[in-house]
Amino acid sequence: MSLLRRLSAGVAPALVVLAAIAVVALVMMVTGFDPVAAARAAVRGAVGSEFALFSATLKRTTPLLMLGLAVAVAFRAGVLNIGADGQFLAGAAAACAFGLAVGDAVGRSVLLGALAVGILAGALWAGVAAWLKRRFNVMEVVSTLLLNFVALNLVGFLVRGPLQEPTGAYPASATLLSAARLPLLLDGQRLHVGFVFSVGLAIAAWWFFRSTAAGFQIRVTGASRTVAASAGRLDVDGVQMWSLVASGAIAGLAGACEVTGVTYALYEGLSPGYGYTAIATALLGGLNPLGIIMSAALFGALGAGADAMQRDAGVPAEFATVVTALVVLGVLAVPGVMKNWARITGRGEQ
């Protein structure tokens, strides 16, 4: 890899983000909003104060980072897991149900149990799609996406039925006792220990892909199924199946952390589309765990900024969603654009 390409690997995503923000600013102007005021409010809401940084931006970064890693594990294996959102909800629902059922009978152990159950539920939820793919050759893009809606409606049922809070007034579960809650990191801030987990997980994932045999097997399978099965004799279907299950397990952990670290209760709107933003996060980070730390922080800030923008400047938060979408399109277009550019300038590698 030439130095030029190494540099552009970092520069291109930054350019894409800037371009997406510029386009959205233009749309704001055309539709009669003040982009300068919006930007000011967004920056203040994302990084303008300790509260903004820890209780808004990094709190949002936590699920995005874990889910981004989950998506990356699957994508690296060549499996398009679009269902991180559903696996997140499955993990959250299972962790919450476990935490409520056990209460404080076993002390702090309930938290570990809840996280473990969340991981298991996420793995099972993805496991359904993995099994359908292996057994009936069902495209995982379709099955994982549809399972998102199943998970969402399942949560809707749970919070109106078996898990509903005792008064029966709200479509939400009862609140977890403090034994089942993740400790907070800083006094007076809402950032919880899950953030440390997510960064630790990213570093572990980076090491896993770089140094372990299983990580290499996943990368080879994702790069070329035919080479994996011909130069090596890998069971590529098996590698892809287990990668999808592992991806679901990580997404399940993200859900468990959200419910035990942020909301302390289960309700339908638990994920504002985290699982979809996670796809953008993973792609912007180049499917590289360390890159995903950066992109998750960026999307965390974008989300926090969008809330502030709506609150303080009266600009709809949906503009931030448009930025996310444009970033995905931009990142996907970059390889093609680079190839054209290389051809035009005659600097292609071949």
């Binding site: 372990t212 045999a213 299983a214 290499f216 097997q217 080879v220 790069a223 070329s224 035919t226 080479v227 994996a228 011909s230 130069a231 090596g232 004799r233 890998l234 069971d235």
Partner: peptide, 24 residues
């Protein structure tokens, strides 16, 4: 199609042989 991954390093391509039995 079957023997080399073009944008992997030679070291990674060398490691393809016997990849199915590698652990750790």
């Amino acid at each position: 199609r079957d023997a080399l991954i073009a944008d992997f390093s030679l070291v990674e391509n060398m490691a393809l042989r016997g990849i199915e039995a590698r652990r750790g």
